[in-house]
Simulated assay, not measured.
Amino acid sequence: MSQPSALFSYAFRPFFILAGVYAIAIILAWIGFLFGGWPLPLGWSPLQWHSHEMIYGFVSAPIAGFLLTAMCNWTGAPPLRGAGLVALVLLWLSGRAVFWFAGWLPGWLVAVVDLAFLPVVALYAGRVLLRYGNKRNLILVAVLAALTAGNLLMHLGFMNGGVGLLKLGQGLGLDVITLMIVVIAGRITPAFTANWLKMHGGRPERVTQSARVTQWALASVLALTLVALLPLPLWVEGAVALLAATANGARLYQWSGWQTRSEPLLWILHLAYGWIVVALVLRGLGAFLPALSDSLWQHALAVGGIATLILGVMSRVAMGHTGRPLTLRPFGRLMYAAIIASTVFRLLAANQWLDYRIGVTLSALAWILAFALFVVLYAPILWQPRADGRPG
């Protein structure tokens, strides 16, 4: 099998590489703009351009790569491959291209091209899930639809000059991605943990999942997503965020993540979920303590929770789905350490515990190191055929 056909044999292969590369590009551009005076053909306000491309640009790639790959395991359906996958990749790239040239293009064109990707993924995923009778996972199609709605709000806000719509779309994107993490990580993390403990003589019976706690964890995050869209007093959102933090903290505790401390491919998943809990706590407290800025919980969620989980899942899937042993690549621990450092530096800067310029720069450098290591370590695996000679 040639390298190009291997690259487009499963969605995780091209989309994980693109996620790694784009994570570097978007932060390089942002830091250059903030501190280096680099001109960017933004079209949008710089802050909202940055947040849009982090939420709806960068994160959408690993979501598509993971979902379209996992569906094959859930349903037994053949993967999207070849020309169809190439077309989907080009659609994602087109969305990124129009944003980098948004200052020179009509707003409607930027919106049409950028908004197309997530609905196409949702329609394809929904069709496959229905055809194979896997209705349980249709919730993820609804999540993709909600992400599309958030993206649309940001575009409408830009075209109409509505800052409120821009912020609403940004917040909805973060909340919906959080909900997706609570659903997906809530399935894979305890399952992977129990299986690993069983294989390595641990105590898998300590990995528990209470139906009631799980229901509260999911329902509270869904409630938070809805409450944030309504014109309610801030303390209501804060109270729901604290409830979500409590439920998801209890859920994480039940997974006994401390038993995986010798396996980085597992503890990174527990750590990422832990950052979600921290972000919910900070969001809840911020409603009652104005000294805690929104930037604090937003970056705890975006860098600590979302980006850390993305690296953890991509580094695991890249090995397991290419017929290789489930082990972390050399220098993989440095990759994980770098994303942890990026989170810590960004939070220190967000709450002015570290000089803003220094903190943001250190966070950006650590972020770039983390994703550069991913690209260097895993791109060669992702574009090569499976190690065991099997298709895929």
Rank of each mutant, 00 (worst) to 15 (best):
L105V: 09
V182H: 12
A300Y: 01
F117I: 02
P233R: 01
S295W: 15
G161P: 07
W92V: 09
V344N: 10
S363I: 05
I368W: 12
D355S: 07
F99M: 15
R251F: 08
L172E: 12
Q215F: 15
P78T: 12
A279M: 01
L147P: 02
K167R: 14
G286C: 02
L282S: 09
Y273R: 12
L152V: 11
P41W: 06
P4R: 03
G164C: 03
T260H: 09
V141T: 00
R127M: 10
P4E: 00
I306Q: 08
L88F: 03
F58C: 07
P4D: 02
L301Y: 05
I17V: 15
I24L: 12
R386E: 04
L292W: 00
V59L: 15
A97D: 00
N73A: 11
P79C: 11
H52W: 11
Q352T: 15
I268D: 01
G95V: 06
G133F: 07
H321E: 11
R127V: 05
L197C: 00
L301C: 06
G32P: 08
A116G: 08
H52E: 11
A194E: 08
A387W: 10
L68V: 05
L93A: 13
T327M: 12
A77G: 03
W267K: 08
W235I: 11
V344E: 03
R203V: 14
L197E: 10
T208M: 12
L179W: 05
A111G: 04
F374W: 03
Y124V: 02
W258D: 14
K167N: 13
V120W: 12
L90I: 07
L242W: 00
V240L: 05
L34F: 11
